[in-house]
Structures are given as C-alpha cells and as structure tokens.
Simulated scan of single mutants.
Amino acid sequence: MIIKEAKNQKDFFMCMKVRGQVFVDEQHVKSEIEIDEFDQTCRHFLIIIDDLPVAAMRAIEHEDYTKLGRICVLKEYRHQGIGEKLVRYVTQLIKGEFRLGAQLQALAFYEHLGFISYGNEFIEADIPHIMMRKEVK
C-alpha cells in the first residue's frame, strides 16, 4: 500500500479515476459538479495497492482551516481501514483545523476519526450532508 500526495499529472488522473468510479458511476453525481474549480489549486492524495488507485481525497487549504473533500474508496476496498489511513495521513501531514461536508451515510466513519458535526443538514449533489470539524495538533 502506497499513500501519497498527487504531485504529477499521472497521480492527479488516478485520483480523478477513483472519484469518477465512486461519485459519478456509483453515487450518480453529475460529472460536471463532481470536478470543480478547486481541483486545479488544491492538494490531492491517493492510496495505491498493487499499482491500482483505490482511494482518493483532496484538501483545500484556507487561511484558518483546511477543508477535506471528495474522500472516497473503491467499493471492493471498503471496510478494510483504507479510508481511515488516508484521512489520518493527510491530517497528520497538514495539521490544524479540518472541516468537511460528510455524507450522512458516512457520519459514523468520520465520528470514529474524531470529527464532530455542527450546523444543519444540507443537500449537495442530491445527497444529504452535514458539516464536521476536527483539530489536529
């Protein structure tokens, strides 16, 4: 298992491939909203197993916090701790305050990682979400 930041075009496209499979193909998110203006300037991370990209996420660094997003693991690799390893890797690398919009079906996953929900539920890409945050020192 390799966990790394996408520093080149090949790695970036591997991230987009995983995101496409999870969000567009599986969750039916429209491709025109899955990729947005932040993808050109944020940091992307991925996990590769046996030369296959299996998990991806991005981090958008703001002045006071970092927003994590597009966190995804291919269906056949879920429930193996891969998503947890990716989130822990990124939060230890960057440190500080983190925020994310969690799909409600993934709420327990983020709570397990120490994130706390705040605010009201909202709909994004036709999927119920809630904001969450965590401080890493």
Rank of each mutant, 00 (worst) to 15 (best):
I47N: 01
D39E: 13
N8K: 01
A59L: 14
I3Y: 08
E26S: 06
R70D: 08
C15K: 02
I33Q: 05
E34H: 09
L104N: 08
I82G: 01
A108S: 13
I71E: 00
L107G: 02
H28P: 04
Q105H: 15
R58F: 12
T91V: 15
T66K: 02
N8Q: 02
I48E: 13
G114E: 05
R133V: 12
I130H: 05
N8E: 01
Y118W: 07
Y110I: 02
A59Q: 09
I2S: 06
P53C: 09
V87T: 00
I94M: 07
I127R: 01
R19F: 10
G81S: 14
F109S: 02
C15W: 04
F115C: 01
T66M: 11
E5N: 01
D50M: 10
F12Y: 14
F122Q: 10
M14V: 09
M16K: 15
P53Q: 06
A56F: 12
D36S: 00
G101A: 14
N120Y: 13
D36I: 03
D36C: 02
K75L: 10
V90Y: 13
K137P: 07
V54L: 09
G96Y: 12
G81M: 09
C42G: 05
L74E: 00
I48T: 13
N120T: 13
A102P: 07
F122N: 06
G101F: 10
M132T: 05
H44L: 09
K85S: 07
D126W: 07
Q105L: 10
M57E: 04
F98G: 02
A108I: 04
S117Y: 07
V22R: 00
I130T: 04
K75V: 08
A59V: 03
A125Q: 05
M132S: 06
K10D: 11
M14D: 15
V54C: 01
